[in-house]
Design a protein around this nucleic acid. Structure first.
Length: 860
RNA sequence: GGCGGCUUGGCGGAAUUGGUAGACGCGCUCGACUCAAAAUCGAGUUCUAACGAGUGUGGGUUCGAGUCCCACAGCCGCUACCA
């Protein structure tokens, strides 16, 4: 379609407005200390999850959340807030490096090119970002502070008593040895079985395994020496401190389940002089423990196995090691296991119970050993049946349920001093007994593991650490950023040796030290990027105290709500659900450490979180290249314009909902925008758009004919304002369509009232609204004008239409004066012709009048 | 298996606190304009010839239920032997 044939000339005015916003820095956000900073304005920090600038460019999923935050940001700005709405790039990551392996091109080069594409695409959508605050996690200045924060973790430990992080310097002062301190740092070296991917050439966090495996990569368990972050120390706070956050309950639950707190007890069993501790959430069933199971990797297995069982046990362990986690975790598969020949003593009754090893017990959770109570645990029940182990009832079910395999609470039986106690009381009593007799103790267990933080890849932040004589040391702050040297060959070696170790000159230092050659995972940058936006060019601190305090201050909204002050720094964070347990958990952890150390004043990073729903292809399937259902935003902008794309994505349905793309729907909103355009302009003989003769600068309120129009306009201002506040964008657009239809039908369009529509349309379709406003003689940009308020008086009508129901069914409608009292309304309702028909010959039992809404007559 | 979400016309969806179910848009039908078509404008469009029926299914609470309660089914997502 040539521009002339397009329903309105978006292709010429959209880039012009974008250029003007750029040139005038319309969306620049002043910081405290700036000349144009106005301390009387409340702050509003609205954040998008910044994109990874992939080679394939922007996806239609990106503008969904970005348009939502843009609407909120533009509106808040016009409502008198100092709005921080920044954008940046999560630019470290595996794809750039894999591209480098193929082409030999340095990842920095591809990254710069990809960022340029993303930026061009985002600018073409007219988002009101403060581009002066743009950041990229790969910028040396950004890397510097990522490394600095890592060193904060490295030089801190978790003080159990205070429940917070403190500098290890305090321990040094108390005379702790280096070894003792190294054992408690929040960043520490640990040799453990990790998720190693030979074809990616790196280890992965537990949370990442599934993602890469589903992309076809191999991930196997392998013991390696790795850097870990002690996130487990924060498990309880990460659960508790979710409470005051305004997040979807589903996401909170997902995090809680991921952290996986369970309460129970550790119980000590004796095996040939060894003490083997098990963890159980059901210590009340201790009398029913008829055997014990150790994980195949359990350290005592070799020692306790008898000579007769040695071969079988070793064969089983070997078979388990060969199995991938996926195979091992397959629920449908039969239980397997081998008897060790050893017996353990049940501490509560002295019974000798056989000790088995089985792969349904994991070394990584609890103590790697369990007491098996087959009568009241599904897995143990299944295992006992298969291997014909004894099953002893110790819980009496509440109802008449079968006790075999009964796992719910009941009453203790066959349990000595616990008999008759309900499960909860039995638990408390047995734990007291265990503690008094030194045979166990109360224990809270979490599923969350420490965060495996090192990677062996090139395109990430190097660890700012060196090694000498087997000890690690921090690189001084003055030497940050520590940048990786360029390499000629980025190919993984297939061994766990980090890629950076190839750069001998870089690794070996003159004093005989060597550099740590691991790099950080992509999460590192995204753990704190939102902080950097607040003070992006600060070269002496990651964020100045002043900027930190200002952008952390409780938002006006939180204060106005009268509730507790906001605990999170960012007022609104919008992004996809896929980050529910990774980025959102990691960032909370870092923020808490920084808070504990006094670097940030809030306890949480993100006060309010909203998840946008996935946009599916036209076929209702997830968009993917292989299905051929991918929609490219560039094509949509070219055909229909940026405003149409923005508006369509908001009109599709509720932001949080999963919804399919429909190109016909884009046409629909494009037609709506064209209708708005044609209210203002008509084409003359020469094919030029000139101001429509319908547009008249006349007062509206005193003309009876225009009263209905006035009402619609003010309803629209009211509804759009409210709908933006509750992020119900689809209904706001629907209301603007109603308003536009009213203007289209009107013979005269009063200029001031039409401008009100442009005002509220502005955050949704910024280019079109500014263009029409300017062409109609508006001198200031809408973006710089105050947000309009509606006139309550314009909304009231003299008469109301009420619905009349008989026995709950709609039968008639009546019109009454707006101030009619209940008796008048009731009389009018009973007199309505269709109501008379329905009630004829019946007795009126009751009449319910809902003022302003309806009348229901109960008759029989 | 566990947890979460969803289920309203031919389609996307609306109904904010229990009060006119189907706003708005798409599609479709008819009309105006046109030699004709596109575009645009206007009228109509839950089903049913009608009586009536109707928000996944069955029950309940209520004067009144898409909305609240109980049970069930289907679809989607996440998670997975967590002791």
């Amino acid at each position: 379609m040539s521009d002339a044939r397009k329903p309105f000339p978006f292709a010429s005015f959209e880039p012009a407005w974008q250029a003007r916003w750029d040139a005038e820095k319309t969306f620049r956000t002043p910081n405290p200390g700036d000349a144009d900073f106005d301390p009387s304005k409340p702050k509003f920090f609205v954040l998008d999850m910044f994109p990874y600038p992939s080679g394939s460019g922007l996806h239609v999923g990106h503008p969904e959340g970005y348009t939502a935050t843009d609407i909120i940001g533009r509106t808040k700005r016009r409502q008198g807030h100092n709005v921080l709405h920044p954008m940046g790039w999560d630019s470290f990551g595996l794809p750039a490096e894999q591209y480098a392996i193929k082409t030999g091109q340095h990842p920095a080069i591809t990254t710069v090119a990809n960022i340029a594409t993303f930026k061009r695409q985002l600018k073409a959508l007219g988002f009101g970002y403060d581009w002066d605050r743009e950041i990229a996690t790969t910028d040396p200045e950004f890397v510097r502070w990522t490394q600095w924060i890592f060193l904060q973790l490295y030089t801190s430990y978790f003080d159990e008593e205070a429940g917070k992080a403190k500098p290890v310097a305090e321990l040094e002062a108390k005379g702790w040895t280096r070894e003792q301190i190294d054992a408690v740092r929040l960043a520490f070296v640990h040799e453990a079985p990790v998720n190693w991917s030979p074809d990616l050439g790196t280890v992965l966090a537990n949370e990442e395994v599934e993602e890469w495996r589903s992309k076809g990569h191999i991930v196997e368990r392998r013991p390696l020496r790795q850097w870990m972050l002690r996130i487990t120390k924060y498990a309880q706070r990460l659960i508790d401190e979710l409470d005051p956050l305004d997040w979807p309950e589903g996401i909170k639950l997902l995090q809680k389940n991921w952290i996986g707190r369970s309460e129970g007890a550790e119980v000590d069993f004796q095996i040939d002089g060894h003490t083997v501790t098990v963890f159980t959430t059901r210590p009340d069933t201790l009398f029913g423990a008829t055997y014990m199971v150790l994980a195949p990797e359990h350290p005592y297995v070799a020692e306790i196995t008898t000579a007769e069982q040695k071969d079988a046990v070793e064969a089983y362990i070997k078979a388990c090691a060969a199995k991938s986690d996926l195979e091992r975790g397959d629920m449908n598969k039969d239980k397997s296991g081998v008897f060790t020949g050893a017996f353990a003593t049940n501490p509560v009754n002295g019974e000798q119970i056989p000790v088995w090893i089985a792969d349904y017990v994991m070394m990584g959770y609890g103590t790697g050993a369990i007491m098996a109570v087959p009568a009241h645990d599904e897995r143990d029940f299944e295992f006992a049946k298969k291997f014909e182990l004894p099953i002893v009832q110790v819980v009496q079910p509440a109802g008449d349920a079968d006790w075999q395999g009964y796992t719910d609470p009941g009453a203790a039986v066959n349990s000595g001093f616990l008999d008759g106690l309900p499960t909860a009381e039995a638990k408390a009593k047995i734990i007291d007994w265990l503690e008094q007799n030194g045979k166990g103790k109360r224990r809270v267990q979490y599923k969350l593991r420490d965060w495996l933080f090192s990677r062996q890849r090139y395109w990430g932040e190097p660890f700012p650490l060196t090694w000498k004589d087997g000890h690690h040391h921090a690189v001084p702050d003055s030497e940050l950023p520590l940048l990786a040297p360029p390499l000629d060959d980025y190919k993984p070696s297939g061994t766990p040796e980090p890629l950076l170790s190839k750069a001998r000159d870089w690794v070996e230092l003159p004093d005989g030290s060597i550099r740590e050659t691991n790099t950080m995972p992509q999460w590192a940058g995204s753990c704190w990027y939102y902080l950097r936006y607040c003070d992006p060019r600060n070269s002496s601190r990651f964020i100045s105290n002043e900027a930190e305090r200002y952008w952390s201050g409780s938002s006006a909204e939180a204060k106005g709500a009268g509730g507790s002050p906001a605990t999170g720094m960012v007022d609104l964070y919008v992004g996809g659900t896929e980050h529910a347990v990774l980025h959102l958990l990691y960032a909370r952890f870092w923020h808490k450490v920084l808070h504990d150390l006094g670097h940030v004043s809030t306890n949480e990073p993100f006060q309010k979180l909203v998840n946008q729903g996935l946009i599916l292809g036209e076929d209702g399937q997830k968009m993917s290249k292989s299905r051929g259902n991918v929609v490219n935003p560039d094509d949509v902008v070219k055909e229909y314009g940026a405003d149409a794309l923005r508006l369509y994505e908001m009109f599709m349905g509720p932001l949080e909902q999963v919804k399919p793309w429909q190109m016909k729907g884009v046409e629909g909103v494009s037609r709506f925008l064209a209708r708005v355009w044609r209210v203002a302009f008509e084409e003359n003989q020469a094919g030029e758009w000139v101001v429509s003769s319908k547009i008249q600068d006349v007062p509206c309120s005193d003309k009876a004919l225009l009263k209905a129009l006035l009402k619609v306009v003010h309803e629209t201002v009211k509804k759009v304002t409210e709908d933006i506040a509750r992020m119900s964008f689809n209904t706001a657009i629907s209301q603007m369509m109603v308003c536009t239809n009213a203007f289209t039908a009107a013979a005269v369009v009063p200029l001031n009232e039409f401008r009100l529509l442009l005002h509220v349309l502005n955050p949704f379709a910024p280019h079109l609204s500014e263009e029409i406003h300017a062409r109609l003689g508006g001198s200031a940009m809408l973006a710089n004008m105050d947000w309009p308020t509606h006139d309550e008086a314009a909304l009231v009508t003299d008469e109301l239409e009420l619905v009349v129901q008989v026995n709950g069914k709609l039968r008639d409608k009546i019109t009454v004066g707006k101030d009619a009292d209940a008796a008048t309304v009731e009389a009018a309702a009973l007199a309505a012709p269709k109501v008379k028909e329905q009630t004829d010959g019946k007795t009126i039992r009751k009449v319910i009048v809902v003022p302003g809404r309806l009348v229901n007559i109960v008759a029989n």
